[in-house]
């Protein structure tokens, strides 16, 4: 397999061109946005929770590279039916395994941006734990 096919494998391109769960939910029970300051990727994630804080619906919007958008699209499928706590505790490897592509450190940040954003959304709305690595990588960096 050449490099292109390794990184932009068919399933990634499919999620990039036909993102799942695209569009923000209104109203939503949890919502957050995040940027990757290195390259300008932007993701907003909104979530509706059911009984026992189970994720019933999730919608995202954003712009950025194929990896960031496809990874977030795959993530939205992955988190549906999980509880807020399960998503808060989900390791990045769970998403990276799903992606199944080799990533350099810079591209890794693109891939896990959406996961960080949903963790922040759930933390803000439900007080789920947010380990420091996620809090600092996705916090809004607005001067005030």
């Amino acid at each position: 397999m050449n490099e292109f096919d390794q990184l932009y494998r068919e399933v990634i391109l499919d999620h990039y061109k036909n993102p799942r769960n695209h569009g923000l939910l209104d109203p939503a029970d949890a919502r957050a946005e995040g940027q990757n300051p290195l390259c300008g990727d932007e993701i907003t994630v909104s979530v509706r929770l059911g009984e026992g804080d189970v994720i019933e619906e999730v919608g995202f919007d954003g712009r950025g590279c194929a990896i960031s958008q496809a990874a977030t699209s795959m993530l939205t499928d992955l988190v549906k039916g999980k509880t807020a706590l399960e998503v808060a505790e989900m390791p990045k490897e769970a998403l990276l395994d799903e992606l199944g592509i080799p990533l350099t450190p810079v591209r890794l940040k693109c891939a896990i941006l959406g996961l960080g954003v949903i963790k922040v959304a759930l933390h803000k709305a439900k007080g789920t734990p947010l380990p420091e690595e996620w809090g600092t990588s996705t916090r809004d960096l607005v001067l005030d």
Partner: peptide, 13 residues
């Protein structure tokens, strides 16, 4: 239709 990150990745190859 192609993000600059993807453009530069492909050009790197």
């Amino acid at each position: 239709g192609v993000h600059p990150h993807d453009v530069s990745q492909l050009l790197d190859w």
